[in-house]
Amino acid sequence: MNPDSIFNTLDISHYIYLSSVLFCIGLFGVLTRRNAIVLLMCIELMLNAVNLLFVAFSSYMGDAAGQLFVFFIMVVAAAEAAVGLAIIVMIYRNTRSTDVGLFDKLKG
């Protein structure tokens, strides 16, 4: 193992802090934005924070399972983005808006 590699020069707690900051930025976006597409993007940001933490733990522990879970998270994120964007496009056709404040009219 290279003595200058990141595993010898950096403690994993810094990756924990970085992932926590990214997750909280995504949460801030989910709470403050009203555009449904930007909300989906903030959720992608939170998912990526979790992915980064998975990869960090997997690499530090030498266990490949963590990186495979990242694959499955990517699968779920892709499916979620496709279905979510289809729903948003359908709602936009009916209401001419993507404001989530106007989405409370589920009366048919």
Binding site: M1, F57, S59, Y60, G62, A64, Q67
Partner: peptide
């Protein structure tokens, strides 16, 4: 955590 980094894991 158990620190056991490997080169070829990724």
């Amino acid at each position: 955590i158990m620190r056991n980094p490997a080169d070829n894991i990724g």
